[in-house]
């Protein structure tokens, strides 16, 4: 009798032992990926006495946002105790100009390399592709010295320039590949109409590149927000980004560690990229794939 009942849902498949094994694998994998997030959330909502009971996976008996308030406004990063909000606003200050400048330079470079015959284009593109693999450590000391002699070391302009430099290979590649996929007739028609270099870029190419602009914004917002090493070296003590402040809050505590505050601060730092990720959906994957397929 049961066999006659029509199953619901898309593409029904008989539940063979292999299918059960498949779902078991997917379920256990999902747990592996979700447990740390769950632990972060429940820990941040517990009180310290409850955490000391040692039930890592238990739900908080009386959820409290006290740790979140403390993490945001009064947790200590070394000597000062103004919470991670300082780092949040520093990260925003770094993020906005860095995203705009790096995308502007990258899209313009990609455009110039795709439609215009410039003698050094091949060398430049090859160099950009190669450098994407080179560890930052090889550039860091000379860059620190150059910024120092230019009088902009440890400042907001310095970190914006740095994010533009290190974002250049990916941004250029993204836009060059996109522009190269557009029909050349589009470009020729604009030229016949008498449009110049910047006119074609601004009025013809950039409006067509909206999907790539979205991808670039997603990539740069998450990448720059998550940066640690560049912000640590180049932003200066006044502008330390949220990731650096977070590490200071958690790893340089004197005395007993307040794990609930640590986890609340960690979640707060992860919030921006998580929101970008869940809001952007498949665009996120598309961005990484577009930036990853070298050449």
């Amino acid at each position: 009798m049961v066999a006659m009942v029509e199953p619901t849902g898309p593409r029904p498949r008989p539940l063979t032992p292999a299918r059960i094994g498949l779902y078991a694998f997917l379920f256990i994998s999902a747990l592996f990926f979700l447990v740390p997030l769950y632990v972060m959330i429940v820990t941040s909502l517990k009180t310290m006495p409850e955490i000391r009971l040692g039930n890592l996976l238990a739900l908080p008996s009386a959820p409290s946002i006290e740790a979140w308030v403390k993490a945001w406004s009064s947790a200590c990063t070394g000597l000062t105790c103004n919470g991670i909000s300082v780092g949040f606003f520093n990260s925003v200050k770094i993020l906005v100009p860095s995203v705009i400048v790096s995308i502007a330079v990258g899209s313009l470079t990609g455009y110039a390399l795709s439609f215009w015959r410039v003698p050094v284009a091949g060398i430049l593109f090859g160099a950009l592709m190669t450098v994407a693999f080179v560890p930052y450590q090889i550039f860091i000391y000379p860059l620190v010295r150059i910024f120092a002699s230019a009088g902009i070391s440890n400042s907001l302009p310095a970190i914006v320039i740095i994010h533009t430099i290190f974002g250049l290979p990916t941004m250029t590649l993204l836009f060059r590949n996109y522009f190269a996929s557009l029909p050349i007739e589009l470009f020729k028609a604009a030229r016949v109409d008498g449009a110049g270099f910047f006119r074609i870029f601004w009025s013809v190419m950039l409006p067509m590149a909206t999907p790539m602009l979205i991808v670039a914004v997603i990539l740069q917002v998450t990448g720059i927000w998550n940066d640690f090493i560049l912000g640590l070296v180049f932003a200066g003590r006044e502008n330390l980004p949220m990731t650096v402040q977070l590490n200071n809050i958690v790893n340089s505590t004197q005395g007993e560690r307040t794990y609930n505050v640590d986890m609340a601060a960690t979640l707060l730092t992860a919030l921006v990229p998580l929101v970008v990720y869940f809001a952007s959906g498949r665009w996120f994957v598309r961005g990484i794939a577009a930036g990853a397929v070298k050449g």
Binding site: F228, T243, N247, Y277
Partner: peptide, 11 residues
């Protein structure tokens, strides 16, 4: 499966 990749190594 993919959400951890959006977060930083520090987190």
């Amino acid at each position: 499966f993919l959400y951890p990749f959006s977060m930083s190594f520090v987190v």
